[in-house]
């Protein structure tokens, strides 16, 4: 059987992490292809149901990328994201998902290298966790 390749959905803020991903691209910072970006205007826009939807559709991990606290393009949307993620982790655990499948990271527009490193790290961690319970059912 081929090595497990996790699929990660990333909801990324247009002003920071999405731009950081662009910068990682222009700087040709190679990273694993397992991540699919969904561009949002702010991490505070990420409705918990988007995260749940991604998990239910078989994503092995979800990343939310926002601006550093204090740097939010919309004043404090990132802080709202932080609170939601705290609650989401609680819910995920109850539904049998390891809470480490959901990551919230602050990645500034200038941090292309941080973006690439985060993806590498996350893919490795999720690989270690193995396929999500939904993914296992889908494959079976």
């Amino acid at each position: 059987m081929a090595e497990f390749e996790p699929v990660i959905v990333a909801f990324v803020c247009n002003w920071c992490t999405f731009t950081a991903a662009d910068l990682a691209g222009t700087s040709r910072l190679l990273h694993p292809p397992n991540v699919r970006l969904i561009r949002v205007m702010c991490s505070g826009m990420v409705d918990p149901k988007y995260v749940l939807k991604a998990f239910l559709e078989g994503a092995d991990g979800v990343l939310i990328g926002g601006c550093w606290p204090g740097d939010c393009h919309y004043i404090n949307g990132n802080l709202k994201a932080r609170r939601r993620v705290a609650l989401l982790k609680e819910i995920l655990r109850r539904f049998g998902f390891e809470e480490d499948r959901l990551w919230l990271r602050w990645i500034a527009a200038s941090e292309g290298n941080v973006f690439a490193e985060t993806i590498k790290e996350m893919v490795e961690k999720i690989k270690a966790l193995g396929p999500s319970q939904v993914r296992q059912k889908l494959v079976a």
Partner: peptide, 14 residues
């Protein structure tokens, strides 16, 4: 719109 995008991204798994 977002659900459709997620569906599209993960369709391959299903």
């Amino acid at each position: 719109q977002l659900f459709a995008e997620i569906d599209g991204l993960l369709e391959r798994l299903r």
